[in-house]
């Protein structure tokens, strides 16, 4: 039987992990490879590196981070952020990433999903969807550029379209819940879960182990992602997995 997955997310800027990571025990708190090792030891099932570099040099540095991680660790990881072309995907996958995640660029040019999926297979292509509830539209709408721009896409419709184009997995982030630590957006995750048949990673809102239980057990998400609660040591991957195990959720 397949396990549910717990995925820490690392924001990497110019080759360093940002967003206030609190790891006093680590030699270098901002080193992505050190943090990847730390999370691996805690039992993380996968990692996501989100490249938030603004410069070309920063993006090149990200390729080095990917290469170093793949040289050091035997766990799967996804890289997202700033991937605009098939060449960008090739570079990261060749450096040892297992999957690439596309977001804004796929909304600007949806064929990018198909190009990547045809070339590398659907299992390599993750489409990240940033969704926010809209009273005006009566549903969740998709946003780009870190939530700055609202698109015309309804989240559920875009999820279906992304899968039709060849996405092998969806990373669904609730902008309403993100940073609130009051739990994942269960209705959003459920709506997308029911619309498509690829694995879903729920993201945004994790505050404690119960929140993971709710989204994995009640809404049947395949994986759940979190950043700050792991970085700030409010809980650990091991602790979350222990609690899930005790409640009968199948984890590694």
């Amino acid at each position: 039987m397949l396990t549910k997955r717990i995925i820490p997310c690392l924001d990497v800027k110019e080759g360093r992990v940002v967003k206030g990571v609190q790891f006093v025990s680590l030699r270098e708190a901002g080193d992505p490879v050190e943090l990847a090792k730390f999370y691996n030891e805690q039992g993380a099932d996968e990692l996501v590196f989100l490249d938030i570099s603004a410069s070309h040099e920063g993006r090149e540095t990200m390729v080095d981070v990917v290469r170093q991680t793949a040289s050091t660790l035997a766990i799967p990881f996804t890289v997202g952020g700033g991937i605009r072309t098939l060449e960008d995907m090739k570079r990261l996958l060749r450096a040892g990433a297992d999957k690439v995640s596309v977001n804004s660029s796929a909304l600007q040019r949806p064929e990018l999903i198909k190009e990547g999926s045809d070339y590398f297979g659907a299992q390599c292509i993750v489409v990240a969807i940033d969704a926010k509830w809209s009273e005006e539209d009566g549903t969740w709408m998709v946003y780009t550029h870190g939530g700055r721009n609202k698109t015309d896409w309804q989240a559920v419709a875009w999820a279906k379209e992304a899968v039709r184009l060849g996405a092998g997995e969806l990373l669904v982030t609730s902008m309403d819940q993100d940073g609130e630590k009051s739990g994942f957006d269960l209705p959003l995750t459920k709506a997308i879960r029911e619309a498509v048949n690829v694995p879903i990673i729920a993201s945004g809102g994790a505050g404690n182990a119960d929140h993971f239980y709710d989204v994995l057990q009640h809404v049947d998400a395949d994986a759940a992602l979190a950043a700050s609660i792991f970085h700030y040591k409010e809980t650990s991957v091991a602790e979350v997995k222990n609690e899930l195990r005790q409640k009968g959720v199948f984890v590694r």
């Binding site: 039987m1 397949l2 396990t3 997955r5 099932d45 659907a122 299992q123 092998g168 997995e169 048949n197 690829v198 694995p199 395949d222 994986a223 590694r252």
Partner: peptide, 19 residues
């Protein structure tokens, strides 16, 4: 296929840790 004999669905791709 993504569909079991009893008509229930399962996810494709097969992605993650399995025994």
């Amino acid at each position: 296929a993504g569909i079991n004999d009893d008509g229930s669905a399962y996810r494709v791709p097969h992605m993650g840790w399995n025994e």
